[in-house]
Structures are given as structure tokens and as C-alpha cells.
Amino acid sequence: MTNSNIGTMKTGYAQKRKAADIAIYIILSVMVVIWLFPIFWLVARSFDSDKVVAADHIIPRSWTLDNYIGLFSGDSEYSKWLLNTLIVAICSCVVSTLIILMISYAFSRLRFKSRKTFLNLGLILGMFPGFMSMTATYAIMSLFGLNKSLLGLIIVYAAGAGLGYQVSKGFFDTIPRSLDEAAKIDGATKNQIFWRIILPLSKPIVVYTALTTFLSPWGDYIFVNYFMKDETENWTIALGLYNMVVGNNITEQFTTFCAGAVLIAIPITILFIIMQRFYVAGVTGGAVKG
């Protein structure tokens, strides 16, 4: 084989590769447009003074901040919903994170009789649809006088969180046991090992657990709708926004919905982008590093 032959082969290969790359660039660009369009549309329409859903334009003809102002003035309950969601999210985040860490630490690092039974029970309980027993939960809350209250909602979220221990248990499993043993020889109790050795080593999973439990009440519709029903002042943001675009409300409140959605999407989007690597590690059970 002569040198020139190799040369033509190389250019042929390079051309083919280039064609493939261009095709990929085109596909990716089209996909990005499709994927970002609805978000762009949402943001653009939130500044639009034209309230029609099917307006014949995407970029507003006349820009306005009225939609945002409308959220916080008049008889709008948006700020109330925002505050409710924030209260519920913060409280249930604190309680749930504690509960999840306690359960997963016990199952991961401690060895006791009937541990396997409890693990299996947790697994089985987790397989019932979460809201299947909603009627009963509601009846229990009514007995305590907590139905239609935010406290009831917090308790429901926190109690349900106990079953989401798998990810953090998996994390605790990866911390070498020799650490516990060394501390034990130095006279530390298991309580001290938990607070002083394991927790400081587990910052990523504490952050992941806190963020997921903080974010979940923002999107929940099922329990809020069933618990609060017509008590609009106790609604959370998801239920409030849902009601803006269902049925005939959409013609009146569409652009207000856009503004409300943009406002809460911004902080949550930022949170998610920051925590995406924890998210990936959580889902793949630590198979991915980084």
C-alpha cells in the first residue's frame, strides 16, 4: 500500500465523519428548539398584556409587568399559597430529613434481630400507591381536628417520607465499617458514632435528602386537593396554579398563571441544576462518580 492510498482513505474517513457530525448538530439544534420552546413561550407570555391563550404571536406585542403585579394585588391569593407551600416545604423537609437519616442509619450501620423483617416490611409498604389510603388518613386527621390545616399536610408528608430511605441507606452502606470499629475501640457509643463520625462524612446525602424532601410538596396535587378542597386560603402553589388553567378559568387567568409559574420555577430550577450530580448519584445507586 502506497502513501498516497493511505492519504485518500484518510480524507474519505474524515469526510464521512464530518457529515455525521453535521447531521448530529442539526438534530441537536432541532431538539433544543423543541425542548426549550414551551419554556420560552411560558416566560414570554408572562410579560404579555394580551390574555388570550392562542394569541397569534409568541413575543408579546406590548410588554407589561401587570401579570406579576396581579399576583400580589387585588383578591389574588398567590402570596398566601406561596407562603403556605414554603411553610409546609420547610417543616416537612426538616422532619422528613431527620426521619430518613435515622431510619437509613439504623438499617445500614446497625445489626439487630428482625432487621431483615423491618427492611422487607418497609419495601412492601412502599409499594402501596401513596394516596390509596387517603380516605383513612383524612379520617384520622379529622379526629385530631387537623384536616384542612397545613399541620395535617406536614404530618402526612413527613410520615410518608419514612419509606424513602433506600437512597441514603445505600450511601451509608458505602462508608467503611472500620471507621465504626475504630471509634468503638476508642470508647464511642453508637449514638456518638452517628453524630460525630457518620453524619459529617455524609454531607452529600444529607443535602440530597433535604433537597428532595423540600421540593416534593411544591408539585403535590393529590393530598392538597383532597385535604383542603374549597379552603382556597390553605391551598399550596401547585393546586392554585392548576385551578388557573382548568376549565373556563384559562381564558381569564392564563397570563397570570404564566407569571406565577415563572416565579416559582426560577428558584426550583436553580436548586435542581445545583443538585443534579446528587440526583444522578441517587438514581444510579452511586454507579456514577462525579
Partner: peptide, 11 residues
């Protein structure tokens, strides 16, 4: 693409 995954799903 991550941005679209990050926007809350119900929105």
C-alpha cells in the same frame, strides 16, 4: 436539556 428537566414538572 437539563433546564427543561429542572423546571418543576407540574409547571
Amino acid at each position: 436539556f437539563v433546564i427543561t428537566a429542572a423546571v418543576p414538572q407540574f409547571v
